[in-house]
Write a protein that binds this DNA or RNA. Structure first.
Lengths: 170, 170
DNA sequence: GGAGGCATGTAAATGGTTACATGATTGG
DNA sequence: CCAATCATGTAACCATTTACATGCCTCC
């Protein structure tokens, strides 16, 4: 139920509508926890029923402003500190590597070179995000930068690996 | 539908029963694509219906030996070379990092130190697997080692990141 | 008046997890 | 004879994705 906790985290920073939260998801959490619009609105209603959040006002276009409740803050703390994170091991790209013996060596090498290229592009994207963001010294930005740094390190490691692996095959 | 292709890959190596495949999953693919028993048997039946695999014999205890068909081999090739892998970005552990400003700095530092420790242990596990496996020069083993090497590099990068991040917070 | 953005909701399908259910065979 | 392992299947539930559906508000 990470979506629920992601929403709690965003609302702990500041209140907002479903639409606001969707935009905030896209702006910051998209790389670690993508969420769709339909999922988000459904979950907000469930969370309201569970009293983790509440509707503080209803505006134009039926806009509902949500705020986190005390129960919600407690649940966020519990999740952050007492719940062991699930390690998501699934990687379609790596799964393919297991079966590259089934294609001819040239095609296998090209696969790995394309992987290296994909990781390089993704790394560049993250560097660009880092440079183009006007970071402030808020808690949100400080920890968002730590997360972004993880992304840069991991994509760099993946790129190096894929280049090396392509050489091994070629 | 990666489970389907993982099964095709394993059956392209050699035939086997659902039970065999379950064990082979646990032995090699578990880190990149875990599968449960119920999921696997259901999928084997669907794949048989789709004629990607076939039952070549039925033995004791109703054991069904599956083999890949020509259609199955073609589908495996197509998936390996023509289908862009989906990039799974979800990380519960990193999602938490985004919200560590919501706990006190000491707890945040401890979270990151525990993360470093988790990655270190996981890295050690992969090193042990590498050393304790009697690798042969089969295609399967050669590419499995490439995948394992990816795991070692990425966990090392994550461990370094978490140690560094803990210092930033502390 | 129209386009684009704001705003919320529901339904169907897919893929995965957990639990339940059954039974045969082999080795100690 | 008992336990472990081999062997297969089904049902319920949950999270996620895609698609459908509606309508208001603001700015040009």
């Amino acid at each position: 139920m990470s979506l629920r906790h992601a929403l709690l985290g965003l609302l702990a920073d500041r209140p907002g509508s479903g639409w606001d939260l969707l935009k905030r998801f896209e702006a910051s959490l998209d790389f670690v926890w993508p969420a769709t619009q339909s999922q988000l609105y459904t979950e907000l209603n469930r969370m309201t029923a569970d009293e983790l959040i509440e509707v503080t006002s209803v505006g134009a276009r039926n806009r509902k402003e949500y705020a986190i409740t005390d129960d919600g803050r407690a649940e966020l703390q519990r999740w952050l500190l007492d719940v062991e994170p699930e390690r998501n091991r699934r990687s379609e790209a790596l799964l393919r590597v297991f079966f590259l013996w089934a294609v001819d060596p040239d095609a296998a090498r090209r696969y790995l070179e394309r992987e290296a290229d994909t990781y390089r592009q993704f790394h560049e994207l993250l560097v660009a995000v880092d440079q183009q963001t006007a970071w402030d010294d808020s808690g949100f930005d400080r920890f968002a930068r730590l997360a972004l740094d993880n992304g840069m390190r991991v994509t760099a490691a993946n790129e190096e690996w894929a280049s090396w692996a392509a050489e091994q095959v070629g």
